[in-house]
Design a binder for these strands. Structure first.
Lengths: 221, 221
DNA sequence: CGTTATTTTGACCCATGTCAATACGGGTGG
DNA sequence: CCACCCGTATTGACATGGGTCAAAATAACG
Protein backbone atom coordinates (compact mmCIF):
# COMPACT_ATOMS: atom_id res chain seq x y z
CA UNK A 1 0.00 0.00 0.00
CA UNK A 2 2.84 2.38 -0.65
CA UNK A 3 2.49 5.48 -2.71
CA UNK A 4 4.67 5.13 -5.74
CA UNK A 5 7.35 7.72 -6.20
CA UNK A 6 6.40 10.46 -8.54
CA UNK A 7 8.95 9.72 -11.16
CA UNK A 8 7.71 6.18 -11.44
CA UNK A 9 4.00 6.40 -10.93
CA UNK A 10 3.44 9.36 -13.14
CA UNK A 11 6.05 9.06 -15.84
CA UNK A 12 5.05 12.35 -17.37
CA UNK A 13 2.01 11.72 -19.51
CA UNK A 14 3.74 12.07 -22.83
CA UNK A 15 2.17 10.22 -25.69
CA UNK A 16 3.92 6.89 -26.03
CA UNK A 17 5.59 7.91 -29.22
CA UNK A 18 8.67 6.04 -30.11
CA UNK A 19 11.76 7.91 -30.96
CA UNK A 20 15.04 6.97 -32.42
CA UNK A 21 13.75 6.05 -35.82
CA UNK A 22 16.47 6.73 -38.31
CA UNK A 23 15.42 9.71 -40.38
CA UNK A 24 17.83 9.47 -43.24
CA UNK A 25 16.96 6.06 -44.53
CA UNK A 26 14.87 4.99 -47.51
CA UNK A 27 11.21 4.56 -46.57
CA UNK A 28 10.86 0.90 -47.28
CA UNK A 29 13.75 -0.06 -45.06
CA UNK A 30 12.37 1.94 -42.15
CA UNK A 31 9.38 -0.27 -41.43
CA UNK A 32 8.39 -2.91 -40.66
CA UNK A 33 10.12 -4.07 -38.59
CA UNK A 34 11.47 -0.86 -37.12
CA UNK A 35 14.06 -0.74 -34.41
CA UNK A 36 13.43 1.95 -31.83
CA UNK A 37 14.89 3.21 -28.61
CA UNK A 38 12.75 3.83 -25.58
CA UNK A 39 14.19 5.78 -22.66
CA UNK A 40 13.85 4.50 -19.14
CA UNK A 41 10.45 5.43 -17.71
CA UNK A 42 8.74 6.09 -21.02
CA UNK A 43 5.46 4.33 -21.77
CA UNK A 44 5.20 2.18 -24.87
CA UNK A 45 1.44 2.37 -24.74
CA UNK A 46 -1.23 3.20 -22.23
CA UNK A 47 -3.91 1.15 -20.62
CA UNK A 48 -7.07 1.32 -22.67
CA UNK A 49 -5.29 2.24 -25.85
CA UNK A 50 -5.46 0.30 -29.04
CA UNK A 51 -2.06 -1.14 -29.74
CA UNK A 52 -1.85 -1.80 -33.44
CA UNK A 53 1.67 -3.19 -33.45
CA UNK A 54 3.46 -5.98 -31.76
CA UNK A 55 6.54 -4.94 -29.85
CA UNK A 56 9.48 -7.23 -29.58
CA UNK A 57 11.94 -6.45 -26.83
CA UNK A 58 15.44 -6.55 -28.21
CA UNK A 59 17.23 -5.10 -25.23
CA UNK A 60 16.13 -3.89 -21.82
CA UNK A 61 13.12 -4.59 -19.65
CA UNK A 62 9.51 -3.51 -19.89
CA UNK A 63 6.89 -3.68 -17.18
CA UNK A 64 3.14 -4.14 -17.53
CA UNK A 65 1.52 -1.87 -15.00
CA UNK A 66 -1.91 -1.11 -13.71
CA UNK A 67 -2.25 2.25 -12.04
CA UNK A 68 -4.79 2.43 -9.25
CA UNK A 69 -7.01 5.17 -7.92
CA UNK A 70 -5.06 5.41 -4.68
CA UNK A 71 -1.79 5.96 -6.49
CA UNK A 72 -0.55 2.43 -5.97
CA UNK A 73 0.39 0.25 -8.83
CA UNK A 74 0.46 -3.41 -9.63
CA UNK A 75 3.10 -4.71 -11.97
CA UNK A 76 1.46 -7.60 -13.74
CA UNK A 77 4.47 -8.84 -15.66
CA UNK A 78 7.92 -8.03 -16.92
CA UNK A 79 9.02 -8.49 -20.51
CA UNK A 80 12.56 -9.44 -21.38
CA UNK A 81 14.63 -9.54 -24.55
CA UNK A 82 12.98 -11.93 -26.93
CA UNK A 83 9.52 -11.43 -25.46
CA UNK A 84 6.82 -9.96 -27.62
CA UNK A 85 4.46 -7.53 -25.96
CA UNK A 86 0.87 -7.43 -26.95
CA UNK A 87 0.71 -9.79 -29.80
CA UNK A 88 -3.01 -10.18 -29.36
CA UNK A 89 -5.70 -7.70 -28.51
CA UNK A 90 -7.19 -9.95 -25.90
CA UNK A 91 -4.60 -8.94 -23.39
CA UNK A 92 -3.93 -5.50 -24.75
CA UNK A 93 -5.77 -2.52 -23.31
CA UNK A 94 -5.47 -4.18 -19.95
CA UNK A 95 -2.36 -2.39 -18.78
CA UNK A 96 0.24 0.24 -19.46
CA UNK A 97 3.63 -0.86 -20.73
CA UNK A 98 6.60 1.14 -19.45
CA UNK A 99 10.30 0.85 -20.04
CA UNK A 100 12.08 -0.15 -16.85
CA UNK A 101 15.45 0.49 -18.42
CA UNK A 102 16.43 2.07 -21.67
CA UNK A 103 15.12 -0.34 -24.24
CA UNK A 104 15.63 -1.26 -27.81
CA UNK A 105 12.50 -2.68 -29.38
CA UNK A 106 11.37 -3.83 -32.78
CA UNK A 107 7.91 -3.01 -34.06
CA UNK A 108 5.88 -4.75 -36.67
CA UNK A 109 2.28 -4.80 -37.74
CA UNK A 110 -0.06 -7.03 -35.85
CA UNK A 111 -1.33 -8.67 -39.01
CA UNK A 112 1.64 -10.94 -39.26
CA UNK A 113 1.16 -12.37 -35.83
CA UNK A 114 -2.21 -13.75 -34.97
CA UNK A 115 -2.85 -15.40 -38.27
CA UNK A 116 -3.10 -18.92 -36.92
CA UNK A 117 -5.93 -20.27 -34.83
CA UNK A 118 -3.87 -20.32 -31.67
CA UNK A 119 -4.60 -17.20 -29.67
CA UNK A 120 -0.94 -16.51 -29.62
CA UNK A 121 0.52 -14.96 -26.54
CA UNK A 122 -2.73 -14.98 -24.63
CA UNK A 123 -2.04 -18.44 -23.36
CA UNK A 124 1.30 -17.40 -21.93
CA UNK A 125 -0.01 -14.21 -20.40
CA UNK A 126 -2.88 -16.04 -18.81
CA UNK A 127 -0.73 -18.84 -17.46
CA UNK A 128 1.69 -16.30 -15.98
CA UNK A 129 -1.09 -14.33 -14.41
CA UNK A 130 -2.67 -17.40 -12.91
CA UNK A 131 0.58 -18.48 -11.32
CA UNK A 132 0.95 -14.95 -10.01
CA UNK A 133 -2.43 -15.22 -8.31
CA UNK A 134 -1.44 -18.52 -6.78
CA UNK A 135 1.85 -17.14 -5.59
CA UNK A 136 0.13 -14.13 -4.11
CA UNK A 137 -2.35 -15.91 -1.94
CA UNK A 138 -0.55 -19.09 -1.11
CA UNK A 139 2.93 -17.88 -0.28
CA UNK A 140 4.32 -15.44 2.21
CA UNK A 141 6.42 -12.55 1.04
CA UNK A 142 9.71 -14.34 1.58
CA UNK A 143 8.64 -17.23 -0.61
CA UNK A 144 7.29 -14.87 -3.24
CA UNK A 145 10.54 -12.97 -3.44
CA UNK A 146 12.62 -16.13 -3.69
CA UNK A 147 10.24 -17.39 -6.35
CA UNK A 148 10.55 -14.14 -8.23
CA UNK A 149 14.34 -14.09 -8.13
CA UNK A 150 14.46 -17.58 -9.54
CA UNK A 151 12.04 -16.63 -12.25
CA UNK A 152 14.00 -13.65 -13.51
CA UNK A 153 17.43 -15.18 -13.15
CA UNK A 154 17.72 -16.50 -16.66
CA UNK A 155 16.84 -13.10 -18.10
CA UNK A 156 19.40 -11.03 -16.25
CA UNK A 157 22.52 -9.98 -18.14
CA UNK A 158 25.91 -10.61 -16.68
CA UNK A 159 27.79 -7.87 -14.94
CA UNK A 160 30.84 -7.27 -17.10
CA UNK A 161 32.98 -6.29 -14.13
CA UNK A 162 32.06 -9.05 -11.73
CA UNK A 163 32.27 -12.68 -12.72
CA UNK A 164 29.17 -14.78 -12.08
CA UNK A 165 27.27 -11.71 -11.03
CA UNK A 166 24.11 -10.55 -12.78
CA UNK A 167 22.74 -7.10 -13.28
CA UNK A 168 19.55 -6.78 -11.30
CA UNK A 169 17.83 -4.35 -13.60
CA UNK A 170 14.79 -3.80 -11.42
CA UNK A 171 14.46 -1.47 -8.50
CA UNK A 172 13.29 -2.69 -5.11
CA UNK A 173 10.04 -0.85 -5.73
CA UNK A 174 9.53 -2.69 -9.00
CA UNK A 175 10.00 -6.00 -7.29
CA UNK A 176 7.70 -5.01 -4.44
CA UNK A 177 4.96 -3.85 -6.75
CA UNK A 178 5.13 -7.09 -8.65
CA UNK A 179 5.15 -9.61 -5.84
CA UNK A 180 2.68 -7.59 -3.83
CA UNK A 181 4.63 -6.47 -0.82
CA UNK A 182 6.34 -3.35 0.42
CA UNK A 183 9.67 -2.00 -0.69
CA UNK A 184 10.97 -2.40 2.84
CA UNK A 185 10.07 -6.04 2.98
CA UNK A 186 11.96 -6.62 -0.25
CA UNK A 187 15.02 -4.99 1.27
CA UNK A 188 14.83 -6.97 4.46
CA UNK A 189 14.25 -10.21 2.63
CA UNK A 190 17.16 -9.68 0.27
CA UNK A 191 19.35 -8.87 3.25
CA UNK A 192 18.18 -12.06 4.92
CA UNK A 193 18.95 -14.10 1.83
CA UNK A 194 22.40 -12.57 1.80
CA UNK A 195 23.19 -13.42 5.40
CA UNK A 196 21.96 -16.93 4.75
CA UNK A 197 24.39 -17.16 1.84
CA UNK A 198 21.65 -17.83 -0.64
CA UNK A 199 22.65 -14.86 -2.73
CA UNK A 200 25.26 -12.16 -2.70
CA UNK A 201 24.67 -8.49 -3.35
CA UNK A 202 27.99 -6.92 -4.37
CA UNK A 203 26.09 -3.69 -4.78
CA UNK A 204 22.53 -2.53 -5.08
CA UNK A 205 22.17 -3.35 -8.73
CA UNK A 206 24.04 -6.61 -8.83
CA UNK A 207 23.07 -10.04 -7.65
CA UNK A 208 24.95 -13.27 -7.51
CA UNK A 209 23.06 -16.52 -7.00
CA UNK A 210 24.91 -18.78 -4.60
CA UNK A 211 22.52 -21.44 -3.34
CA UNK A 212 19.83 -22.10 -5.90
CA UNK A 213 18.48 -25.15 -4.16
CA UNK A 214 18.06 -23.24 -0.96
CA UNK A 215 16.16 -20.56 -2.80
CA UNK A 216 13.96 -23.12 -4.46
CA UNK A 217 13.16 -24.67 -1.12
CA UNK A 218 12.10 -21.29 0.21
CA UNK A 219 10.16 -20.51 -2.93
CA UNK A 220 8.22 -23.69 -2.32
CA UNK A 221 8.27 -25.33 -5.72
CA UNK B 1 -3.33 -21.38 4.43
CA UNK B 2 -6.07 -23.68 5.52
CA UNK B 3 -6.25 -27.31 4.57
CA UNK B 4 -9.30 -27.86 2.48
CA UNK B 5 -11.86 -30.26 3.84
CA UNK B 6 -11.74 -33.67 2.33
CA UNK B 7 -15.10 -33.58 0.70
CA UNK B 8 -14.17 -30.42 -1.13
CA UNK B 9 -10.55 -30.73 -1.95
CA UNK B 10 -10.67 -34.29 -3.10
CA UNK B 11 -14.06 -34.74 -4.63
CA UNK B 12 -13.45 -38.42 -5.25
CA UNK B 13 -11.35 -38.73 -8.33
CA UNK B 14 -14.03 -39.99 -10.62
CA UNK B 15 -13.55 -39.31 -14.26
CA UNK B 16 -15.42 -36.16 -15.08
CA UNK B 17 -18.02 -38.02 -17.07
CA UNK B 18 -21.30 -36.33 -17.41
CA UNK B 19 -24.42 -38.17 -16.56
CA UNK B 20 -28.08 -37.54 -17.01
CA UNK B 21 -28.08 -37.70 -20.75
CA UNK B 22 -31.51 -38.69 -21.86
CA UNK B 23 -31.36 -42.22 -23.19
CA UNK B 24 -34.63 -42.53 -24.95
CA UNK B 25 -34.31 -39.76 -27.46
CA UNK B 26 -33.45 -39.78 -31.15
CA UNK B 27 -29.71 -39.54 -31.73
CA UNK B 28 -29.64 -36.30 -33.63
CA UNK B 29 -31.54 -34.43 -30.94
CA UNK B 30 -29.21 -35.67 -28.25
CA UNK B 31 -26.07 -33.82 -29.34
CA UNK B 32 -24.88 -31.24 -29.79
CA UNK B 33 -25.82 -29.42 -27.72
CA UNK B 34 -26.48 -31.92 -24.97
CA UNK B 35 -28.01 -31.01 -21.66
CA UNK B 36 -26.46 -32.77 -18.67
CA UNK B 37 -26.71 -32.77 -14.94
CA UNK B 38 -23.67 -32.53 -12.72
CA UNK B 39 -23.97 -33.30 -9.03
CA UNK B 40 -22.52 -30.97 -6.43
CA UNK B 41 -18.82 -31.64 -5.98
CA UNK B 42 -18.26 -33.46 -9.24
CA UNK B 43 -15.50 -32.27 -11.54
CA UNK B 44 -16.37 -31.28 -15.09
CA UNK B 45 -12.77 -31.68 -16.14
CA UNK B 46 -9.40 -31.80 -14.48
CA UNK B 47 -6.43 -29.52 -14.62
CA UNK B 48 -4.07 -30.66 -17.34
CA UNK B 49 -6.75 -32.43 -19.29
CA UNK B 50 -7.72 -31.71 -22.83
CA UNK B 51 -11.21 -30.35 -22.80
CA UNK B 52 -12.70 -30.91 -26.21
CA UNK B 53 -16.05 -29.31 -25.55
CA UNK B 54 -17.31 -25.99 -24.44
CA UNK B 55 -19.58 -26.10 -21.43
CA UNK B 56 -22.37 -23.65 -21.00
CA UNK B 57 -23.77 -23.32 -17.51
CA UNK B 58 -27.53 -23.44 -17.62
CA UNK B 59 -28.19 -23.71 -13.92
CA UNK B 60 -25.99 -23.82 -10.84
CA UNK B 61 -22.45 -22.65 -10.13
CA UNK B 62 -19.07 -23.98 -11.18
CA UNK B 63 -15.70 -23.11 -9.68
CA UNK B 64 -12.31 -23.05 -11.40
CA UNK B 65 -9.83 -24.48 -8.93
CA UNK B 66 -6.13 -25.00 -8.70
CA UNK B 67 -5.08 -27.60 -6.21
CA UNK B 68 -1.73 -27.01 -4.53
CA UNK B 69 0.94 -29.28 -3.17
CA UNK B 70 0.21 -28.29 0.40
CA UNK B 71 -3.45 -29.20 0.09
CA UNK B 72 -4.63 -25.65 -0.22
CA UNK B 73 -6.59 -24.48 -3.16
CA UNK B 74 -7.12 -21.29 -5.06
CA UNK B 75 -10.45 -20.69 -6.69
CA UNK B 76 -9.65 -18.68 -9.76
CA UNK B 77 -13.18 -17.94 -10.86
CA UNK B 78 -16.82 -18.87 -10.56
CA UNK B 79 -19.04 -19.52 -13.53
CA UNK B 80 -22.73 -18.69 -13.44
CA UNK B 81 -25.71 -19.48 -15.61
CA UNK B 82 -25.05 -18.12 -19.07
CA UNK B 83 -21.28 -18.35 -18.72
CA UNK B 84 -19.36 -20.62 -21.04
CA UNK B 85 -16.48 -22.55 -19.53
CA UNK B 86 -13.41 -23.27 -21.58
CA UNK B 87 -14.24 -21.97 -24.96
CA UNK B 88 -10.60 -21.71 -25.91
CA UNK B 89 -7.64 -23.94 -25.46
CA UNK B 90 -5.53 -21.10 -24.20
CA UNK B 91 -7.14 -21.35 -20.81
CA UNK B 92 -7.84 -25.04 -20.83
CA UNK B 93 -5.68 -27.36 -18.77
CA UNK B 94 -5.03 -24.47 -16.46
CA UNK B 95 -7.45 -25.52 -13.73
CA UNK B 96 -10.01 -28.02 -12.59
CA UNK B 97 -13.67 -27.18 -12.96
CA UNK B 98 -15.95 -28.42 -10.20
CA UNK B 99 -19.66 -28.09 -9.60
CA UNK B 100 -20.31 -25.97 -6.52
CA UNK B 101 -23.99 -26.86 -6.60
CA UNK B 102 -25.90 -29.35 -8.64
CA UNK B 103 -25.63 -28.01 -12.14
CA UNK B 104 -27.34 -28.27 -15.46
CA UNK B 105 -24.95 -27.67 -18.33
CA UNK B 106 -25.05 -27.77 -22.09
CA UNK B 107 -22.17 -29.19 -24.08
CA UNK B 108 -21.14 -28.53 -27.61
CA UNK B 109 -18.11 -29.18 -29.73
CA UNK B 110 -15.35 -26.66 -29.57
CA UNK B 111 -15.24 -26.32 -33.33
CA UNK B 112 -18.17 -23.97 -33.35
CA UNK B 113 -16.57 -21.58 -30.97
CA UNK B 114 -13.13 -20.29 -31.75
CA UNK B 115 -13.63 -19.93 -35.46
CA UNK B 116 -13.06 -16.21 -35.58
CA UNK B 117 -9.77 -14.47 -35.08
CA UNK B 118 -10.72 -13.15 -31.69
CA UNK B 119 -9.37 -15.48 -29.01
CA UNK B 120 -12.83 -15.84 -27.65
CA UNK B 121 -13.30 -16.08 -23.94
CA UNK B 122 -9.64 -15.66 -23.21
CA UNK B 123 -10.13 -11.94 -23.06
CA UNK B 124 -12.75 -12.23 -20.38
CA UNK B 125 -10.85 -14.82 -18.38
CA UNK B 126 -7.73 -12.72 -18.49
CA UNK B 127 -9.50 -9.53 -17.54
CA UNK B 128 -11.14 -11.26 -14.60
CA UNK B 129 -7.89 -12.76 -13.45
CA UNK B 130 -6.09 -9.45 -13.69
CA UNK B 131 -8.68 -7.71 -11.57
CA UNK B 132 -8.40 -10.56 -9.10
CA UNK B 133 -4.66 -9.97 -8.84
CA UNK B 134 -5.27 -6.28 -8.27
CA UNK B 135 -7.86 -6.96 -5.64
CA UNK B 136 -5.57 -9.43 -3.91
CA UNK B 137 -2.62 -7.16 -3.44
CA UNK B 138 -4.21 -3.80 -3.15
CA UNK B 139 -7.11 -4.45 -0.83
CA UNK B 140 -7.43 -5.86 2.63
CA UNK B 141 -9.64 -8.82 3.28
CA UNK B 142 -12.65 -6.75 4.28
CA UNK B 143 -12.54 -4.82 1.04
CA UNK B 144 -12.03 -7.99 -0.97
CA UNK B 145 -15.05 -9.64 0.58
CA UNK B 146 -17.24 -6.61 0.01
CA UNK B 147 -15.97 -6.45 -3.55
CA UNK B 148 -16.72 -10.09 -4.05
CA UNK B 149 -20.25 -9.86 -2.67
CA UNK B 150 -21.02 -7.02 -5.03
CA UNK B 151 -19.59 -8.97 -7.91
CA UNK B 152 -21.71 -12.05 -7.39
CA UNK B 153 -24.88 -10.26 -6.45
CA UNK B 154 -26.39 -10.16 -9.89
CA UNK B 155 -25.85 -13.89 -10.33
CA UNK B 156 -27.56 -15.06 -7.16
CA UNK B 157 -31.07 -16.46 -7.47
CA UNK B 158 -33.83 -15.13 -5.27
CA UNK B 159 -34.86 -17.00 -2.21
CA UNK B 160 -38.43 -18.06 -2.92
CA UNK B 161 -39.40 -17.87 0.72
CA UNK B 162 -37.89 -14.54 1.66
CA UNK B 163 -38.58 -11.42 -0.34
CA UNK B 164 -35.54 -9.44 -1.50
CA UNK B 165 -33.25 -12.15 -0.18
CA UNK B 166 -30.82 -14.03 -2.39
CA UNK B 167 -29.54 -17.55 -2.15
CA UNK B 168 -25.84 -17.41 -1.35
CA UNK B 169 -24.86 -20.57 -3.13
CA UNK B 170 -21.25 -20.58 -2.03
CA UNK B 171 -19.84 -21.85 1.22
CA UNK B 172 -17.67 -19.69 3.43
CA UNK B 173 -14.73 -21.83 2.41
CA UNK B 174 -15.41 -21.20 -1.27
CA UNK B 175 -15.46 -17.48 -0.68
CA UNK B 176 -12.29 -17.63 1.39
CA UNK B 177 -10.43 -19.66 -1.19
CA UNK B 178 -11.38 -17.23 -3.89
CA UNK B 179 -10.62 -13.91 -2.23
CA UNK B 180 -7.51 -15.32 -0.61
CA UNK B 181 -8.27 -15.27 3.07
CA UNK B 182 -9.32 -17.71 5.75
CA UNK B 183 -12.74 -19.12 6.36
CA UNK B 184 -12.82 -17.51 9.78
CA UNK B 185 -12.11 -14.07 8.38
CA UNK B 186 -14.99 -14.47 5.97
CA UNK B 187 -17.28 -15.31 8.88
CA UNK B 188 -16.11 -12.41 10.96
CA UNK B 189 -16.35 -9.99 8.09
CA UNK B 190 -19.85 -11.05 7.15
CA UNK B 191 -20.87 -10.68 10.79
CA UNK B 192 -19.37 -7.21 10.81
CA UNK B 193 -21.24 -6.25 7.66
CA UNK B 194 -24.41 -7.47 9.30
CA UNK B 195 -23.99 -5.44 12.46
CA UNK B 196 -23.24 -2.42 10.28
CA UNK B 197 -26.53 -3.00 8.47
CA UNK B 198 -24.81 -3.36 5.13
CA UNK B 199 -26.30 -6.79 4.60
CA UNK B 200 -28.62 -9.13 6.38
CA UNK B 201 -28.11 -12.84 6.83
CA UNK B 202 -31.48 -14.44 7.54
CA UNK B 203 -29.68 -17.73 7.60
CA UNK B 204 -26.34 -19.14 6.54
CA UNK B 205 -27.27 -19.59 2.92
CA UNK B 206 -29.25 -16.46 2.38
CA UNK B 207 -28.13 -12.90 1.99
CA UNK B 208 -30.01 -9.67 1.66
CA UNK B 209 -28.20 -6.58 0.43
CA UNK B 210 -29.24 -3.56 2.42
CA UNK B 211 -26.72 -0.81 1.86
CA UNK B 212 -25.07 -1.21 -1.52
CA UNK B 213 -23.37 2.16 -1.43
CA UNK B 214 -21.81 1.36 1.89
CA UNK B 215 -20.50 -1.88 0.52
CA UNK B 216 -19.13 -0.15 -2.53
CA UNK B 217 -17.33 2.35 -0.37
CA UNK B 218 -15.72 -0.47 1.57
CA UNK B 219 -14.91 -2.37 -1.60
CA UNK B 220 -13.06 0.70 -2.76
CA UNK B 221 -14.37 1.15 -6.28
C1' DC C 1 -32.67 -38.43 16.77
C1' DG C 2 -27.93 -39.24 16.78
C1' DT C 3 -23.98 -38.17 13.74
C1' DT C 4 -21.30 -35.28 11.00
C1' DA C 5 -20.23 -31.09 8.26
C1' DT C 6 -20.33 -26.26 8.45
C1' DT C 7 -20.29 -22.01 10.73
C1' DT C 8 -19.46 -18.94 14.44
C1' DT C 9 -16.87 -16.88 18.10
C1' DG C 10 -12.86 -16.23 21.11
C1' DA C 11 -7.87 -15.98 22.24
C1' DC C 12 -3.35 -15.49 20.86
C1' DC C 13 0.54 -14.05 18.18
C1' DC C 14 3.37 -13.52 14.16
C1' DA C 15 4.27 -11.54 9.62
C1' DT C 16 4.27 -7.52 7.47
C1' DG C 17 2.81 -2.72 6.56
C1' DT C 18 3.80 1.93 8.03
C1' DC C 19 6.45 5.68 9.70
C1' DA C 20 10.84 7.62 10.40
C1' DA C 21 15.76 8.23 10.45
C1' DT C 22 19.97 7.29 8.15
C1' DA C 23 23.07 5.70 4.65
C1' DC C 24 24.47 5.07 0.13
C1' DG C 25 25.50 6.13 -4.71
C1' DG C 26 25.29 8.16 -9.12
C1' DG C 27 25.14 12.37 -11.56
C1' DT C 28 25.86 17.28 -12.01
C1' DG C 29 28.12 21.45 -11.76
C1' DG C 30 31.79 24.11 -10.05
C1' DC D 1 38.52 15.91 -9.09
C1' DC D 2 35.67 17.13 -5.42
C1' DA D 3 31.41 18.61 -3.13
C1' DC D 4 26.87 18.59 -3.20
C1' DC D 5 22.24 16.81 -4.02
C1' DC D 6 18.59 13.94 -4.73
C1' DG D 7 16.66 9.47 -5.58
C1' DT D 8 17.10 4.98 -3.90
C1' DA D 9 18.06 1.75 -0.45
C1' DT D 10 18.66 0.21 4.26
C1' DT D 11 17.57 -0.42 8.95
C1' DG D 12 14.90 0.16 13.20
C1' DA D 13 10.70 0.64 15.97
C1' DC D 14 6.04 0.00 16.36
C1' DA D 15 1.15 -1.24 15.51
C1' DT D 16 -2.11 -4.32 13.71
C1' DG D 17 -4.50 -7.22 10.29
C1' DG D 18 -5.51 -11.45 9.86
C1' DG D 19 -3.85 -16.43 10.25
C1' DT D 20 -4.07 -20.36 13.34
C1' DC D 21 -5.77 -23.19 16.96
C1' DA D 22 -9.57 -24.47 19.74
C1' DA D 23 -14.22 -24.87 21.38
C1' DA D 24 -19.04 -24.15 20.95
C1' DA D 25 -23.17 -23.62 18.25
C1' DT D 26 -25.95 -24.40 14.47
C1' DA D 27 -27.53 -26.82 10.48
C1' DA D 28 -27.76 -30.84 7.42
C1' DC D 29 -28.49 -35.59 6.76
C1' DG D 30 -29.42 -40.29 7.01
Amino acid sequence: MRAATLSEAIPCKVPPLLYGEPQNVPIESRRPPTASLIPRGRALFWEGEEQPQKIEIVEGVVRAVRLLENGNRQILAFYWPGDVVMPTQSSCQQFTAEAVTNCRVRLSTVSGICHNSEPCGARQVLADTLSLVISMTQKNSIARIAWFLLRIRKHLPEDPKRPLALQLLLSRADIADHVGTSLETVCRTLAEFKTKKLIDLPNRKTIRFINLQGLQRIAGD
